[in-house]
């Protein structure tokens, strides 16, 4: 099948699933209320999927591997820590915590700064030693997450769980307040890298070969880190961290695409990622009676796929 056909099928699936999630039970009397509830949720899920699918592919390309995604490196945990730190140091009533949009914008800025810091320290020094970077990422991710919970615990031990639910978004608590601003930001960030798509094709040959072919590889890596920080911030702010989604969709997209072109691979990854989240949401809502969450479901499927990748001895 041609790549354009695959993309068309994914678009059809995306639209189909969206309709199945939004339409049921709508009547001329209640549609305003239900659509007002369901559309922001739907939009949030699609934006999240797209953000994760987009950043994972490009991140893997510039770091020349198939297991490293922003999530593996602890980007999403970093976002949680920023949230907890803002709450801890400024208090829950402060503008930067209480106002969802302001909170999101500040967090994104801090994320970008931290991502660039991470790039300079971890990647700069180790000379892209993959195992080292993955280990550091795993440990830092764990550290950030634990620190975030720790800060919440200090603030109010008795209300820890409710605070956690209020602070951190999840699929049962989608942060629809910021969906518009997050969407605009994701589109702008992703659009910024569109003109670099052909450079990403070259970057797949490795740093040396791209420099030889006249691509400023270090600048491309930097832009990718900035955009990934923004996209992961948006995704984490909307529905919370989903560790294995990026890994899964980026690898599947590379397998599905016939072309090596990043325009094709990222398009497939973005669509596939949103389709998977929507399918997960549908399964949880309709067939599991909210007995589990989409995050658990996706991480289960993604985790199994990850093990398969390892067992198949794929060159990671």
């Amino acid at each position: 099948m041609r790549d354009s056909g695959k993309i068309a099928i994914l678009i059809a699936l995306l639209i189909g699933l969206s309709l199945v999630l939004v339409l049921p039970g709508l009547t001329p009397e209640n549609y305003e209320f239900f659509l007002g509830q369901r559309l922001p949720k739907l939009l949030a899920i699609i934006v999240t999927g797209g953000a994760i699918g987009y950043s994972a592919v490009l991140f893997q390309t510039v770091t020349h591997n198939r297991i490293l995604t922003p999530a593996t490196l602890g980007f999403d945990a970093m976002y949680l820590l920023i949230q907890a730190a803002l709450f801890f140091f400024l208090g829950g009533a402060s503008f930067l915590v209480a106002d969802r949009n302001a909170n999101f914008l500040v967090s994104v800025v801090v994320m970008v700064v931290l991502a660039l810091f991470l790039l300079r320290t971890v990647f700069g020094r180790s000379g892209h030693d993959l195992v080292f970077v993955v280990l550091v990422g795993t440990i830092f991710g764990q550290l950030f997450r634990t620190l975030a919970y720790f800060l919440l615990m200090i603030i109010s031990p008795s209300e820890f769980t409710s605070l956690q639910n209020k602070m951190f978004a999840s699929f049962s608590n989608i942060n629809t307040n910021i969906v518009l601003i997050a969407m605009v930001m994701c589109i702008a960030a992703a659009g910024w890298l569109l003109r670099d798509m052909r450079k990403f094709d070259v970057a797949g040959l490795g740093r040396e070969q791209s420099v030889s072919l006249g691509v400023d590889h270090d600048a491309l890596v930097k832009r990718t880190f900035i955009v990934s920080a923004i996209l992961v911030s948006a995704a984490t702010a909307l529905v919370g961290p989903i560790a294995f989604l990026g890994l899964m969709v980026a690898n599947l997209a590379r397998e599905i695409a016939t072309s090596y072109r990043h325009t094709v691979i990222t398009a497939i990854s973005v669509l596939l990622s949103s389709v998977m989240l929507l399918a997960g949401q549908l399964a949880v809502e309709r067939y599991m009676n909210f007995g589990t969450t989409v995050t658990v479901l996706i991480n289960f499927v993604g985790g199994v796929y990850f093990v398969i990748l390892l067992l198949r001895g794929n060159r990671l």
Binding site: T61, R66, G206, E208, S212, G214, Y260, R315
Partner: peptide, 22 residues
Amino acid sequence: GGSDLAKRISILKQSNFVNMRL
């Protein structure tokens, strides 16, 4: 400039592992 130099000097490193279907 990057691409000006890339028209004059090319380099081939020893590890030619490529992560793409090409």
